[in-house]
Design a protein around this nucleic acid. Structure first.
Lengths: 341, 341
DNA sequence: CCAAATTTGATGTACGTAAATCAAAATCTG
DNA sequence: CAGATTTTGATTTACGTACATCAAATTTGG
């Protein structure tokens, strides 16, 4: 049987009330007594029954998800997953709400974060814009004792408790190796389509991609990055243009969102050429393109996993519990046409 | 605020005792009254507070994991993950125990299952040996109302509630495409190393592999399957022999466990040749081989995820709750040297 | 050493559900 | 319609923890 507060009291030779004072850091306990109780807790291996505690407290966790107001497929999906979590939230004693902030706008983000500092929710998850003032705002929250996790995009050097997202450098490296191996030693040029180099995940993916390309596939040269702003129209125009001008292109790496334009350009311009294409984010469009052979591989992060992981971690932090690291690691999914979910 | 049993009572105009009788399917409630209560439950959207219920019941889930007594790295890892879960089990109100059965021995497995039928644990997870008598034994348990999930290896046509493992046909197909693309149109022979064709996962992987190879990479021919019995020594001997005899081998697919022998053979015999190698299961050995270039890609199923998923599903089934399908899908991990965890 | 302050104990209620008991009411049987 | 039977209500205790209150014991300061 699992030890209870009564067992602590008996073991430490004190009353239940004193145990309670120690457990919940209430005042009015002499130092020696406190230590006696803490020793007993350690010795009998007591672990608070979180379910019973939450029941007694009538606690509901209030979590806030701060998401950028960009309307690409991935962010839509992420938004949807948060809504799914909200639908389930009454059952899980959580109260989740979302706040939309303009994308790539550090000041707006900082303002929201500062406001939340007063409100003191049980936890905050945010898609971080990587800027020093955002880092400072997050650090203030953490210092205030509010659990904070970054979602999808991390925050350099901040004290956030956890990052629920993939390793984007590794993602870029993986894309490079897949592309390089698929091209099997051929010589040619690689077009890279990004959303914006101002976004940290995109920068990191490119960094990893370029590193492996340079080191291991010297016969392939990377063309200057095309910034499509995650906008299908812009991407379509720029990619179509590049394909017309450069006949040496034999591969494409699309590391951002807004692949709809890319796919359209590929279908128009590359029917005659055999391009090898690696793209990020599994959506209805990229899935179809993978199946019909326009895209050769898709790298993906599972938004549902990221959201659920963020919630689990926030809960654990709010309860002062440890997280299972291996469980919370967000994996990079590699999809070929054969292993689509 | 979330509705409680009191709210049901008020809404249905009955007493708490009657609500309890309906909720916990106790006898002594007239049909019309029962329906009245059930209607109220639906209308106010009541969901039982599982935490409070378990607290009141003093319930601990007793789960049994039936694992084969084979000593390859993967099964070791699986065993370890179950032990990790056991270590955490007191905190989660679960009582998990493992039973080892001889591998590939349907009768032994059936005997254990029948014994468990009398004992009536809260749930059973088993690495299934795919045989009709095992299926029948599982179906008996399911009919008896005991939650059953298959782990790693599924059971054809059975009524098990869930399968916590990867889609092995898709895994084989993925391996074929990776190998085919990595070889980039070259012509040659592919050696396939399996554990035993008596194991369902191995058969399925081969099936998927052969299908894609035949359909999409006709320049590659698959040699007769080498059965290494998941034993490093046997595998080493057989692979070394094959490599000596067949000079046309340009690729290897190792779909079973026991890769230690394979790797040794590759290092001895293939220093001069450039083989493309795809293997299953990430272990210390395969990881090292991937990093030093002996292996080109590793397909993996995360044993920790499988075990945790099995437990979550068993719990949900024991409580009569729905599972989050997307969360419980076990993904096929593809590791290149760049995205190792 | 006494009064004041601090520490500790004893006790009760609450959270939402399960489970049991006993009495009261409704329904059925002959 | 009486009596047996079934159904329903009312009430209590319990699970493990949180939190509050009041009294008792202990320590501290002057």
């Amino acid at each position: 049987m699992r030890p209870t507060v009564h067992d602590i009291a008996a073991a430490a030779g004190v009353s239940l009330a004193t145990v309670d004072r120690v457990l919940n850091q209430r005042p009015g306990v002499r130092h020696v007594t406190r230590e006696k109780v803490e020793k007993a807790i350690r010795e009998i291996g007591y672990v608070r029954d979180v379910a019973a505690a939450n029941l007694a407290k009538g606690r509901t966790y209030s979590f806030v998800f701060i998401l950028p107001a960009s309307d690409n497929s991935f962010m839509h999906g992420l938004n949807g997953e948060v809504r799914v979590a909200i639908a389930r939230s009454s059952v899980e004693r959580t109260n989740i709400r979302t706040i939309e902030v303009p994308a790539f706008d550090p000041r707006a983000l900082v303002q929201i974060l500062d406001e939340l500092g007063d409100e003191r929710p049980s936890g905050i998850a945010l898609v971080a814009t990587d800027a020093p003032e955002v880092r400072d705002a997050v650090d203030r929250l953490v210092q205030d004792g509010i659990p904070v996790v970054t979602l999808v995009s991390d925050l350099t050097g901040s004290q956030r408790h956890h990052y629920a997202g993939v390793d984007n450098i590794a993602a870029g490296r993986t894309a490079a190796r897949l592309l390089g191996r698929f091209l099997g030693g051929a010589r040619g040029e690689i077009a890279v389509l990004a959303g914006s180099m101002l976004v940290r995940d995109h920068r990191e993916r490119l960094e990893g991609f370029a590193a492996v390309m340079a080191a291991e596939f010297p016969s392939l040269s990377i063309l200057p990055v095309i910034e499509g702003r995650d906008d299908p129209e812009v991407a379509h125009m720029l990619v179509a243009d590049a394909l017309s001008r450069k006949s040496g292109i034999i591969g494409v790496y699309s590391l951002g969102a807004g692949n709809r334009g890319l796919i359209r350009a590929l279908k128009e311009k590359a029917v005659d050429r055999s391009l090898t294409v690696i793209a990020h984010e599994l959506t209805a469009h990229t899935r179809a393109a993978l199946l019909d052979g326009t895209i050769d591989a898709i790298l993906n992060q599972d938004a549902g996993h990221e959201v659920r992981s963020a919630i689990r971690v926030l809960k654990a932090k709010a309860d002062g519990l440890a997280v299972i690291e291996a469980q919370e690691r967000i994996r990079l999914d590699i999809f070929l046409k054969d292993n689509l979910p």
